[in-house]
């Protein structure tokens, strides 16, 4: 894994180039057709979400089969955007996700490097303990966690969401895998040249981490974008909520009928940009994962 992985990004698979020169053979087209059918099924529920958002009342139900509403309407969108602070929710989500992602990438890079490249007292213990945290269901720790955050005085501020989630075990794990693949030789070479430990990291190791950072950013951003239970208990006030928490104020309550049209409209507005981002960056993303050495 070591040297190969780091260079994968720049290497186009030979077989790929060779095939591309020919025209696509018929069997490939069959595969494309199968994939297209499968993709249609996979996308359908999200398509149905959009259809629901465009149906008055948001309830895309009927006793007859149909694929497109007879009278599509933007009423759900205009109503929810005029009665709920949706832009604020989106703004908060973006802010919290971006800041947390940035912090967690830094934290994960550092931890991953330490765990991969040093042998020190407590390494195994920390690593095992980190892994343990993703196994404990949040329902059990949420009250104690809240007490801790309240004691520090963070509740009702975005930091209450940002700081605890900046510790991202999956990110640390991926970073460590990548760092294991960075050849020791280049770190040693830097040391021989008289660079300190930190300079060796910043000037030699970090520059090879581009794809790793890409993957960490995307995975962390998506995880934080969809975070629900924790932000739900620490954020307060309609203006300060993130999108999933904002949506939860409209659903899930026995006290009133949920405005599903509004919910679907907000969900549509928040999913489509992410789809677009992935569509544009999927190649870099896949190559990034390839070079992190999660394999």
């Amino acid at each position: 894994m070591s040297t190969d992985t780091v260079t994968t990004t720049t290497r186009t698979p030979r077989s790929a180039t060779r095939v591309r020169r020919r025209s696509t053979p018929p069997r490939r087209w069959l595969l494309v057709a199968v994939l297209a059918i499968l993709a249609a099924f996979v996308v359908f529920p999200l398509y149905w979400m959009v259809v629901s958002a465009l149906t008055s009342g948001g309830q895309s139900q009927s006793t007859e089969f149909y694929l497109w509403p007879k009278e599509p309407t933007f009423a759900n969108f205009t109503e929810v955007f005029s009665t709920q602070p949706v832009w604020r929710w989106i703004g908060n989500s973006v802010l919290i996700s971006v800041v947390t992602t940035a912090l967690s990438v830094v934290v994960s890079l550092g931890a991953g490097y330490a765990l991969a490249k040093y042998r020190f007292w407590g390494r195994g213990l920390f690593y095992a303990a980190f892994m343990l945290t993703i196994m404990i269901p949040i329902q059990v720790t949420i009250v104690p966690s809240f007490l801790v955050v309240a004691r520090i005085g963070l509740v009702d501020s975005p930091w209450a969401v940002i700081l605890p989630t900046a510790f991202d075990v999956v990110g640390i794990f991926i970073a460590r895998q990548f760092m294991l693949g960075v050849p020791d030789a280049i770190v040693e070479a830097a040391r021989v040249d008289g660079a300190g430990e930190y300079r060796a990291f910043f000037s030699v190791v970090l520059p090879t981490c581009g794809p790793l950072v890409g993957v960490l950013v995307i995975l962390a951003f998506m995880a934080r974008w969809n975070d629900f239970l924790w932000p739900m208990v620490v954020l307060q006030g309609a203006e300060n909520l993130t999108v999933p928490v904002g949506l939860s104020t409209l659903t899930n309550n026995p006290a009133f009928a949920s405005p599903w049209g509004a919910v679907m409209a907000v969900a549509t507005v928040t999913v489509l940009p992410i789809l677009a981002v992935f569509l544009v960056f999927q190649k870099q993303f896949v190559q990034g994962i390839s070079s992190t050495g999660i394999k």
Partner: peptide, 15 residues
Amino acid sequence: TTGQFHQWFITRLAA
């Protein structure tokens, strides 16, 4: 009030 009423309220009351 957010969704999951009891979870939200119990947690908030605890602190």
